[in-house]
């Protein structure tokens, strides 16, 4: 039986009837049309589908859309404001924190939470804090540099 859900996504309210078995990532991409969050492994390992629900980074392939009813979601599309990139996005750009870019939306959402919880993380804290996100291109070096740069910028 379909259920009506109302979700605030990037500041805009959306109401849809969805089947309970619809995963949040499929809802975001196929119903709402936000293709920023990516589907990598779909087994809650890779983190490419990471979005923020009520301020917490979660893997949207491991949550049903019905569970998001009444909650606030932030996706990569909602990060920039007034034509300006979010400091984490800007730092990934400047530090070349990506190659193919597939993991990037999830990396940035996870990095944003990491810096919010720990404004000046050490290298080890950054590496540990991104344990839920896999990148197959960069070897992580430039991602870690980007998070460091973003933390410095956001603290400034």
């Amino acid at each position: 039986m379909k259920k009506s859900i109302t979700v605030t996504i990037n500041g805009t309210k959306h109401t849809h009837d969805v089947e309970p078995r619809l995963l949040l990532i499929h809802y975001l991409r196929e119903v709402v049309g936000l293709t920023g969050p990516h589907i990598g492994c779909e087994t809650s390992i890779c983190g490419a589908c990471t979005v923020s629900v009520d301020g917490k980074a979660i893997k949207s392939c491991a949550m049903f859309a019905v569970q998001a009813d009444g909650r606030e979601i932030l996706t990569i599309e909602g990060l920039s404001a007034d034509g300006k990139l979010h400091p984490v996005q800007q730092a990934f750009w400047e530090e070349h924190g990506l190659q193919c870019g597939y993991c990037t939306p999830g990396m940035i959402m996870a990095s944003k939470q990491l810096i919010e919880r720990n404004p000046s993380p050490t290298e080890s804290e950054i590496r540990h804090g991104l344990e839920g996100n896999l990148c197959r291109c960069t070897g992580y070096q430039h991602i870690v540099a980007a998070v460091k740069a973003a933390a410095a910028k956001m603290g400034a």
């Binding site: 980074a57 491991a62 996870a110 990491l114 344990e131 839920g132 996100n133």
Partner: peptide, 9 residues
């Protein structure tokens, strides 16, 4: 346990 996204939920 798991990773930070899993521990959040």
């Amino acid at each position: 346990i798991g990773d930070v996204q899993v521990r959040n939920v």
